[in-house]
Nucleic acid binder design. Structure first.
Lengths: 251, 251
DNA sequence: CGTCCAAATTGATGCAAGTCAAATGGGTAC
DNA sequence: GTACCCATTTGACTTGCATCAATTTGGACG
């Protein structure tokens, strides 16, 4: 069965079909004219399927490619010499992993599959060559990287200025809108990551994350059982994220 | 005197000379072959001089250019609707400001001169056109942006995992090595930013920054009077930043 | 040279979130 | 089904840093 699946997914293991991919409105093809799509397909490699917990790459791997999430989800984290971990992001289908490594010989972070996950691989050497020829694609790469800087600044802001409740509300809303953009329910989804990962990402202790979840639940803002989450009152959540700012206003 | 200076700095106000610039081993020219340097000069504009506190751009400005610091220094920060500020970075001569805005119509942050500061301006439209023709320059842009993502991740890590002392030690060491790369003393320099900016950047209260400075001083690690700082014991500082990790090791 | 205001320092107190400890739940393999 | 392990939750206690308040310092300017 597993073998059959593998055959079905990768009839020609080295080439992916962007034309037929349902993510072409999110992923790199978004920036490529239809008649140039072949050139992108030429350099994309259909990556293999990773089971939950498997590494797509880690900080000891030589940097060679960026990856687009095709299905499933990925968490990236920096791991210090002493084994200390800092989760730097969660990636959903259509999002690109590895942009932070383009200045280094080795990957700048470790990427781990949070569930059964498939990816497409873009060898950077070929990708750079192609972006040199396709201005729109180059522009899109700049956009993506710039967006990632902004995201990271937002995270820094969250970490340095916001309370535990505000951080968690922000994360839930971010996930919600990202699910929505992928045509999934924005109010009813299953968290791809463990409480531990949430805690690490948001600079909190696991216990605090757990407590905030139950607090939100008692207030009727969300319903959570394990990884299944239902947002019962999105406005209330938005209010939580803004509460901090509103106080600033009143002063 | 001020006028004479202005004339000397900008004989032809629209064109900068990368050939003669002392920062050519730090800034964008770093990635450009000598015989292509003219093409970079063609698109660079000599920016004006900003006094301390003046804005180079802010979040209401339409995004048009990236800027290289020529002399002086710049701080960038995000300002929320409610006026809350988060400092996202400090920039020294040769460093590029504005890379986080390449995905947006308006600048993603506000850039303010921390002292008398001059800049070179790179209009993005022309810059993108040029990077399409010069693969090395394109590669360098990817490197710069990727480096900025990494820096921001490091900041997030600092904010979420490290104590006040560790954060401040890290900042001092970062400044030290950046001064050194610019052929200035790595142990004896003047902070371009106020305590307030340091506090905001590191997610601390001003009072905490002040206390840590005096603590370091009492321990004989640094000497600080106002913005003048002398690092008396660099190894001790490095030890402070690593203390956290070392504890992780012992477990 | 004194005046004024912002920046920096120092001290006292409170709280949000971390830490430690223990109980509960849920998933997986045998 | 049941045993095991890891993830999650809950409770009790501790603490680093924020906050509030009061000086002190220092630079800009008339």
């Amino acid at each position: 069965m597993a073998q059959a699946l593998r055959f079905r997914q990768a009839p020609s293991p080295l080439k992916a079909s962007c034309h037929q991919c349902s993510l072409s409105n999110l992923c790199l093809p978004l920036a490529v004219q239809d008649n140039d799509l072949d050139r992108l397909e030429d350099i994309v490699q259909q990556g293999r399927i990773y089971n939950r917990g498997e590494h797509i790459f880690d900080q000891s791997t030589q940097f060679r490619s960026c990856f687009a999430v095709k299905s499933g989800s990925i968490k990236t984290s920096i791991i210090t010499e002493s084994g200390e971990e800092q989760v730097t992001g969660f990636f959903m289908p259509g999002e690109i992993v590895g942009l932070d490594s383009m200045s280094s010989e080795a990957y700048a972070c470790t990427a781990k599959a949070l569930e059964r996950t498939s990816v497409c691989e873009f060898p950077v050497e070929k990708l750079e060559e192609l972006t040199g020829k396709l201005p729109d694609l180059q522009h899109h790469m700049y956009r993506l990287m710039s967006q990632e800087i902004q995201n990271s600044h937002q995270l820094a802001m969250l970490l340095s200025k916001n309370t535990a409740e505000e951080r968690i509300a922000s994360l839930l809303l971010s996930l919600s809108s990202r699910f929505q953009r992928r045509r999934m329910s924005p109010t009813n989804f299953s968290l791809p990551m463990a409480r531990n990962d949430i805690a690490n990402f948001l600079g909190l202790a696991v216990e605090t994350v757990s407590r905030v979840f139950t607090r939100f639940q008692n207030q009727g803002i969300i319903r959570a059982r394990g990884r299944e989450v239902e947002l019962l009152d999105v406005e209330a959540l938005q209010l939580v994220t803004r509460e901090f700012s509103r106080q600033g206003c009143q002063q």
